[in-house]
Design a binder for these strands. Structure first.
Lengths: 251, 251
DNA sequence: ATCTAACGTATCAAATAATGATACATCGAT
DNA sequence: ATCGATGTATCATTATTTGATACGTTAGAT
């Protein structure tokens, strides 16, 4: 089982318990943990007990279900401090959010997904789009495409060919050639704009935050209702302010 | 070392590595990890390696420093889904934040601290007050006091006598009798208001979210500049809206 | 109210997998 | 270029995890 002698299997197993929780499995019994981790019952028993004692899992004394603890939030707190981009971007995003009155996100590349690291929801934003830490396939998002557009041609072509691209909505573009065209367009324009790729009636506009090496690992994305906006209006009213914002973050 | 046979020491040690990071230690070398965890060099080497391979720690290939990974944000995402209060409160808080235009927080009791689970910053909010997961000694905050006020007399007296109460600012009240008086006042009034307990020039107003058992494990807190507001104005302008908000969350 | 199947808890001998001392390699400061 | 500090690799020892099993407990059905 262990590949090299530095791999501590027991620790890896413990982490599997944590990963067994997700947005549709927010609390788990012992046997559910056994099913979802594929580990032995005894092992799960010990790991869950340890995680509970160590404060990583809460436990309902009546139902005996395990739940994520506050520690899961504390870890996010430390992450925020650890990433200097976050503290640079946040005040600018707050200001931007107030100016345009729409939902504003900071997205970071994370493998072949993007992860939302900061989110400033507005009154129309639904729950899933209001909370940080959500991962979405990069190719399906304006943020992902605009970040890819700052990479080399080899890189973005490889990504467009192989990264996941599930059909989240009936209108999701699953033709990879079209996605690649959009990346090329983003490269030319300096922004990407999509509609109904992840959520119906949602327009997303994203501009990259370009690092010193010319590559972007982050992007600022605005989400708008397609009932209130069309692409033209987004380009006229939102894009200029967004470009100012990202420029000020890059310093 | 192990207390009972269900305790998996290896897993507990791995978690200590994660806890070695905090807001003033956002990246750590191997030897720093050894110092901060008190574990053997070899153990830290293996644990850090495993956490890296499992995606819980990033690593700078040049400096060889370990850093929190995106996974730390993903855990927060799951936590949000796991706590039904969060999804009930968030839309109301967004609306409230827009109405009053000030920083709005959802605080939860976490042992003898409170933890900020939701934060809607405004343009004046500084970084530390903008990000979720921050823990603050409960007695020092309006939220903590107003939650204590919903507990039994025995409980809140015990808390006022023994919970931590560090002098965060020159004006922090460290007289526990005064704190207890404030809890009693909160019990009578249904809200708590503090000034300069955690941060100078900051007024905090908090109202509890009371559960079916009459006890509060959460509170909504508004933070205001004492340069712009005094207690009277807060009570007149903010408090009524805040009471409406918490009432609507309790449903 | 009683039964029963599913779930959670406790125990223990076996042996695997973590341990930690040490040696080697690499880095970076002077 | 040298030296001290930091990171990496190795291996025999044994403490620790393992996992099968037996025992309690719960909740749902009749």
């Amino acid at each position: 089982m262990k590949q090299n002698s530095l791999h501590v299997g027991t620790l890896a197993k413990g982490l599997r318990l944590l990963r067994a929780f997700d947005e549709s499995h927010v609390s788990l019994t012992l046997t559910e943990l056994v099913e979802r981790t594929g580990l032995e019952k005894s092992a799960v028993q010990r790991m869950a007990h340890t995680l509970h004692v160590e404060g990583m899992l809460d436990r309902d004394p009546d139902t005996r279900r395990y739940r994520p603890s506050h520690a899961w939030l504390e870890l996010a707190y430390v992450y925020y401090w650890s990433n200097p981009l976050i503290s640079r971007a946040l005040p600018k995003l707050i200001e931007f959010s107030r100016t345009v009155g729409e939902t504003v996100n900071l997205a970071q590349m994370s493998g072949d997904h993007i992860i939302y690291a900061l989110r400033l929801p507005n009154h129309r934003t639904h729950f899933a789009a209001s909370i940080v830490g959500r991962r979405v396939p990069a190719l399906a998002t304006a943020s992902g495409r605009v970040m890819l557009a700052t990479r080399s041609e080899a890189e973005y072509r490889e990504a467009c060919a192989s990264w996941p691209l599930p059909a989240a909505t009936p209108r999701t573009i699953t033709d990879r050639a079209v996605v690649e065209e959009d990346v090329v367009a983003a490269r030319r324009n300096g922004y990407a704009i999509t509609e109904a790729q992840v959520l119906l009636n949602e327009i997303s506009l994203a501009v990259p935050i370009i690092g010193t090496d010319g590559r972007a690992d982050a992007a600022v994305q605005v989400s708008l209702s397609s009932l209130a906006y069309d692409f033209d209006r987004v380009r006229r009213e939102i894009l200029p302010v967004l470009l100012d914002t990202t420029a000020s973050i890059q310093g």
